[in-house]
């Protein structure tokens, strides 16, 4: 976990220094704001990982001497097949087509999206299809 944190914090620190130089040198707003956003995007998860890395024991994947057996057991929940990503994708497609072909397409788009989100959530609760 420590290396992950260092990667993000390192990038964030570089962006912060770069932004300070850029801001005071150029006085240009758009770029300065966008680099600040980039800095925060690195610090937010980076600090979270750093905080955790000091509180948890190293995971098997952080241990250079770990044996494969140490990773045995449940890795996570992986759904089998699911129709909901396709449904959600088609709903997004319809929503984007509404930008071009008329606002009325938002109605079926939102309906389809609602159906897909409800379906995907229900599937997660049941643990996926077997």
């Amino acid at each position: 976990m420590r290396t992950e944190a260092r990667v993000l914090l390192g990038l964030g620190t570089f962006f912060a220094i770069m932004d300070a130089v850029y801001w005071f040198w150029s006085k240009e707003d758009a770029g300065g704001v966008m680099i600040i956003a980039g800095t925060l995007l690195c610090f937010l998860p980076g600090l979270y990982y750093f905080w955790w890395s000091r509180r948890m024991r190293p995971r098997p994947e952080d241990d250079p001497h770990a044996e494969p057996a140490q990773g045995a057991g449940v890795v996570g929940t992986f759904p089998g097949t699911s129709i909901w990503p396709f449904t959600l994708g088609m709903a997004s497609f319809v929503m984007v087509l509404a930008l071009v072909f008329g606002v009325w397409l938002v109605v079926p788009g939102v309906a389809l999206m609602f159906w897909a989100v409800v379906g995907a959530t229900g599937e997660s609760r049941r643990g996926g299809q077997h």
Binding site: V74, V75, G76, T77, F78, P79, G80, T81, S82, I83, P85, F86, G127, G128, Q129, H130
Partner: peptide, 23 residues
């Protein structure tokens, strides 16, 4: 086998339905 074991595609859909529903 990880992940609570479910989701073996051997028993899952085939053909176009497999393509549409795969994860």
């Amino acid at each position: 086998a990880p992940a609570g074991g479910h989701g073996h595609e051997e028993h899952g859909p085939t053909g176009i339905l497999k393509w549409l529903t795969t994860t």
